[in-house]
């Protein structure tokens, strides 16, 4: 059986020392090994950003796509081959700005893949511009007088979009994050994991310490019930989205493929796909 070391490759990440993304990489490697996956059974699709480089740092089938488009590629892979474990990943700009349309629709579509956002509330790769999750007033190169727009609330948006699995954590809590990713991979449907991953180079406000002080673990909330939409919404509102843990899960919901009776639910990859003589004749007859 594979260990997390089998998910390592020969590439040395080019992330800045101290970048939150390192720990997310480690948590994914650990979660995959702990779930009994082999590296070749995993397809990891990323967008563009510092975070997007992840697909090249984990030994698995890796697909580094275009900015904001990891989700469509990942869903396409899963629709071709349901036997693969598919993870999509990228930054907050990738998933909540240029790719926001795909994010909302992937949430509502509920294809059985896992989406891990590495949220640093800034654009890292392009050297420090405001992001959709940057707090109001946040000063960056493109918001010298402070951000004038309200930040997007990814978890609330996910609730509103029909999500069936929503989790959030900190990259510094590798253990907790690993457990969450394991559950996300086990979830039958689309699992969304937002991870606060500090950018030590361009975001001096939302630091490791800042996140620790501002996030609330749902385990510490007495009456929290992650299957109860009303409670989830109440606490998301109360804590401004800063919850930690598996915030919401609907274990009953059917995944996209489970809705389609005729859908070949294991594998749509055939070396020599065939159309029988009879099917050919029947379909051609409909053109008469």
């Amino acid at each position: 059986m594979a260990t997390f070391k089998d998910f390592r490759n020969h590439i040395k990440p080019n992330w800045c020392p101290g970048c939150g993304d390192f720990s997310i990489q480690a948590a994914i490697q650990k979660a995959c090994a702990a779930n009994g996956l082999e590296p070749e059974e995993l397809a990891l699709v990323t967008g563009i950003g510092c975070s997007g480089r992840l697909s090249g740092y984990i030994k698995s089938y890796g697909f580094h796509s275009t900015h904001g488009r990891s989700l469509p590629v990942a869903q396409g892979i899963k629709m071709a081959n349901q036997e693969l474990t598919v993870i999509a990943s990228g930054g907050d700009g990738d998933g909540f700005a240029i790719g926001m349309g795909h994010t909302i629709h992937a949430l509502k579509r509920n294809i059985d893949i896992t989406y891990i956002v590495m949220d640093n509330q800034i654009y890292g790769l392009t050297k420090g511009q405001t992001s959709p999750t940057s707090d109001a007033g946040f000063v960056t190169k493109t918001t010298p007088d402070g951000a004038k727009e309200n930040p997007i609330a990814p978890l609330k948006a996910a609730m509103a979009s029909g999500a069936t699995f929503i989790a959030q954590s900190l990259s510094s809590d590798i253990k907790g994050l690993t457990a969450i990713i394991q559950e996300a991979l086990n979830h039958k449907g689309f699992s969304f994991v937002n991870v606060f991953s500090p950018c030590v180079t361009y975001n001096k406000i939302n630091t490791y310490d800042w996140y620790k002080e501002n996030i609330v673990d749902i385990a510490d909330l007495e009456d929290y019930d992650n299957a109860d939409r009303a409670i989830v919404s109440k606490y998301l509102e109360e804590h401004n989205g800063m919850l930690k843990g598996i915030v919401y899960q609907d274990k009953e919901a059917k995944s996209y493929a489970e809705h389609i009776e005729s859908y070949n639910d294991t594998n749509n990859v055939h070396e020599t796909p065939e159309v029988s003589e009879n099917d050919f004749k029947e379909l051609m007859a409909s053109f008469k």
Binding site: V45, S65, T66, P72, V73, G76, V269
Partner: peptide, 9 residues
């Protein structure tokens, strides 16, 4: 992009 993903697979 879904078509690309599916073909890649």
């Amino acid at each position: 992009m879904m078509a690309i993903g599916s073909n890649y697979a």
